[in-house]
Design a protein around this nucleic acid. Sequence first.
DNA 1: CGGTATCCGACCTGATACTG
DNA 2: CAGTATCAGGTCGGATACCG
Lengths: 125, 125
Amino acid sequence: MELTTPEPLHMECGRFSSVLSSIGDKWTVMIVLTLTGRPRRFNEMKRVVGGISQQMLARTLRALERDGMLTRTVHPTVPPQVEYALTDLSRSLAGPIRQLGTWAGAHIDRIEGNRSAFDAARAAA
Amino acid sequence: MELTTPEPLHMECGRFSSVLSSIGDKWTVMIVLTLTGRPRRFNEMKRVVGGISQQMLARTLRALERDGMLTRTVHPTVPPQVEYALTDLSRSLAGPIRQLGTWAGAHIDRIEGNRSAFDAARAAA
DNA sequence: CGGTATCCGACCTGATACTG
DNA sequence: CAGTATCAGGTCGGATACCG
């Protein structure tokens, strides 16, 4: 047991993995970003996000709602209207997400270059 | 096209998705955390991480190496020794990751509570 | 020791069709 | 409009066996 790299880090990691995998999945961050500024309705989001299937949008929204990351408000009109909006919880995530986005923006070119170089080296071998 | 939520955000998101999904996958963050402080050898990491299969460790290490997030150094000894170490790139990611970890630590209890409440409500219905 | 190859089940994702 | 149901393909992740 190394005191310099204590085990608790890994235990935390285990607890946090569900949060990290949410952030890492294909649509979550994009959907949350789409809701910054103002609430959106289902098909409105489908159009704005672009490329997402109806099912994946429904699933992702349900998962976020379950986590308390957004609210689902049904307006009993005809045709039915359902609005999705961010919560305090998801808004508090904006800061860390932005940090990550900034990092990605600063390093994505390098990363893609690294990938190309790695693949080229492998192809040569 | 809304000027309040400009499209470029989504285009960035598309470019960054490969980075986000790396962070979100099951083992990447844990492996990177394991390497903070000092380099590690293959089976050493397998023991420390715990629960990871040999194949997934190899795959994840290869993906990280491809991105330039770690170096792979082979010492031509018998038996062979291979050391993995962080790079400047992966070390620069430590800050944003820590932010995210802090956020997760602060809110994980609430999130898990939300999930339980949501599931209970669904089960009742 | 440090991998790669193969197989397999589970899950993720999308397309399509259908419902209130 | 806002979903759910069903099916099909692909990917993820682990177990096992084998190689240098």
